[in-house]
């Protein structure tokens, strides 16, 4: 079982308490009615589907119930880091992010 660090509980806890919630840092368009059908389709459905470090949302659903963001390597399934929702996307090349 994976162990995931919850940035709100500040504890590393078993995966069974968490739920995956899709790719992170996808901002909802300010005014959806101004978008073309293609742009709206891209917002709703088109995701990056990366191989390697992937920024994604998780929810500590059976714990503090908060959404947060995580960087997970989609090849090794290793969690590189987690951070609170609303914080800027971390730069993975900095030393503290690499820890």
């Amino acid at each position: 079982m994976l162990l995931i660090h919850c940035p709100y509980c500040d504890q590393t806890l078993p995966e069974a308490e968490f739920a995956y919630a899709g790719e992170a840092h996808i901002a909802r368009p300010e005014d959806p009615s101004q978008l073309s059908d293609e742009e709206w389709r891209d917002f709703l459905f088109i995701r990056s589907n990366l191989k390697g470090p992937h920024f994604e949302r998780w929810r500590h659903v059976h714990g503090c119930a908060r959404f947060f963001n995580a960087v997970r390597d989609t090849v090794s399934d290793r969690f590189l880091l987690t951070y609170r929702a609303g914080e800027p996307r971390p730069d993975l090349s900095t030393p503290e992010a690499a820890q």
Binding site: M1, Q11, L13, P14, E15, A16, E17, H62, G63, C64, A65
Partner: peptide
Amino acid sequence: CPRDLDRLAVGGATRTVFDTAQ
């Protein structure tokens, strides 16, 4: 229960899962 129960201090409590029930 998937939690490490040794890390749950006496007097403390937490929301978690038991089998699949919260």
